[in-house]
C-alpha cells in the first residue's frame, strides 16, 4: 500500500520559470502566514498535533473509498482537514505532506513544490473552507447544514484546484493549447473526482461528529452551552 500515491502533482518543467517563481513566493508567503495563524488555532501544541494530523492525511490519502457503482475514490483531503483542525493548520499539514511526497516519493517536482502547495494547500483548502464557512453562515445551524457546507466545499475544492492549474498553465505553460478544451476536460474529470471527495468528506466528518464533536474545529457553532447542562449530575458524597 505504500507505493500508491494517487493525487495528481505537477512535475518539474510544466510551467515556465516566472510562473514557478511566482507560485513559489505565493506558497512561501501562505505557509509563513499559516505558521503564525496556526498558533492561534492550536497554541503551543501545534507541532505534535499538526504532525499527527499530517500523518493522518498521508495515511488516508492511500485509502480506497467505495463511492458507489463499483468505483472507488481517493481523498485529497484539503477541505476535510480544514474543517477538522482549522484552515491554517490544514495548510501546514498539506504542505508537509506535499513536501514528503516530493522528496521521498519523487511525486511532484522540487521546482514545482511552490505550485503544488499553491494548488493543494492554498486553493483547495481556501476554496473548501471558504465555501464551508459561507454555507454554514447561511444554512440552518444543524448537523445537516454543517455536513452540506462541508460537502459542497469539498466538492468545489477539487475542480477549482484543477481550473487553477489550467489558469497557471495558460499563464506560464510551455505549450500553446486551446484553453477552452483543456479547461473543459480538466474541469469535467475533476467534477467527478470532486463528487467522490464530497461523499468521503461528509461520511468521515459525520463519523467524527458522532464520536467527538469537540474535536471538529469547524463545528464549534454546533456545540452549545446546553451540552454541558445535559451531563448527569454529580452525586454529592454522603
Amino acid at each position: 500500500m505504500c507505493n500508491k500515491v494517487d493525487v495528481v502533482h505537477v512535475p518539474d518543467g510544466f510551467l515556465d520559470a516566472p510562473t514557478s517563481v511566482a507560485t513559489g513566493v505565493l506558497a512561501a508567503g501562505t505557509v509563513a502566514l499559516a505558521l503564525r495563524k496556526a498558533r492561534e488555532e492550536l497554541d503551543e501544541r501545534t507541532a505534535p498535533l499538526a504532525g499527527l494530523t499530517a500523518a493522518f492525511v498521508f495515511a488516508v490519502q492511500m485509502m480506497n473509498f467505495p463511492v458507489g457503482a463499483g468505483t472507488s475514490g481517493h481523498l485529497i483531503g484539503g477541505a476535510l482537514t480544514a474543517v477538522l483542525v482549522g484552515p491554517w493548520t490544514a495548510v501546514l499539514c498539506m504542505t508537509v505532506v506535499l513536501l514528503v511526497q516530493a522528496v521521498l516519493f519523487a511525486d511532484g517536482g522540487l521546482t514545482a513544490l511552490g505550485t503544488n502547495v499553491t494548488l493543494m494547500a492554498l486553493v483547495a483548502v481556501g476554496v473548501g473552507y471558504g465555501l464551508f464557512r459561507l454555507l454554514v453562515a447561511v444554512l440552518p445551524r444543524t448537523r445537516t447544514g454543517f455536513l452540506i457546507g462541508a460537502g459542497v466545499g469539498a466538492f468545489a475544492s477539487v475542480p477549482l484546484a484543477a481550473l487553477a492549474f489550467v489558469a497557471l498553465f495558460a499563464a506560464g505553460g510551455v505549450a500553446d493549447i486551446s484553453l477552452g478544451a483543456v479547461a473543459a476536460t480538466m474541469g469535467g474529470i475533476h467534477v467527478l473526482i470532486g463528487l467522490g471527495e464530497a461523499a468521503i468528506t461528509v461520511v468521515v466528518l459525520g463519523a467524527v461528529l458522532a464520536a467527538r464533536p469537540d474535536l471538529v474545529h469547524g463545528a464549534a457553532h454546533l456545540r452549545s452551552a446546553d451540552a454541558l447542562l445535559r451531563r448527569p449530575e454529580v452525586v454529592a458524597p454522603r
Binding site: V31, A47, A50, G51, L52, A54, A55, T95, V100
Partner: peptide, 8 residues
Amino acid sequence: LVQILGFM
C-alpha cells in the same frame, strides 16, 4: 515546519 515534519 521541521517539527511538524518530524512528528509526521
